[in-house]
Design a protein around this nucleic acid. Structure first.
Length: 108
DNA sequence: AAGATGACTAGGT
DNA sequence: GACCTAGCCATCT
């Protein structure tokens, strides 16, 4: 596993309930400011086994990024359950619910 | 090695 | 706000 992947996991684990982060933020916190798409890839490879709060990661507009209606509905339900405020049907209130993680530069 | 792909983003129309 | 384009970067064909 690459260090970047490990950092992404750490960052996402650090998002408290009721808060969300964007792909760009997660990538930056993991040390790759332009690596939003790498985060996507990491999530694809992790989505199965880990009990990671992946649902707290949304795109830059605050929208749920999952494809398909069912998955999006489920994610929104989980977020609302945690107290995340929604701006629209599938858009969270980023101003209120964005979480600023600490940057993890050094090795862990 | 070259092109396509993805749960992305920023900037322009 | 909706839509398009050009960057982005690891992985897969």
């Amino acid at each position: 596993m690459q260090p970047f992947t490990a950092k992404v996991v750490e960052v996402i684990k650090g998002i408290p309930a009721g808060k969300v982060m964007t792909y760009g933020q997660v990538a930056a916190a993991a040390g790759s400011p332009r690596g939003a798409r790498r985060v996507v890839w990491v999530l694809h490879s992790l989505s199965e086994a880990h009990s990671l709060p992946w649902h707290r990661v949304v795109n830059a507009k605050g929208e749920i990024a999952l494809p398909g209606d069912e998955a999006r509905y489920t994610q929104r339900a989980m977020l609302e359950e945690e107290g995340v405020l929604f701006d629209g049907d599938y858009r969270v209130d980023l101003e209120r619910c964005r979480w600023q993680a600490e940057k993890l530069e050094g090795d862990e």
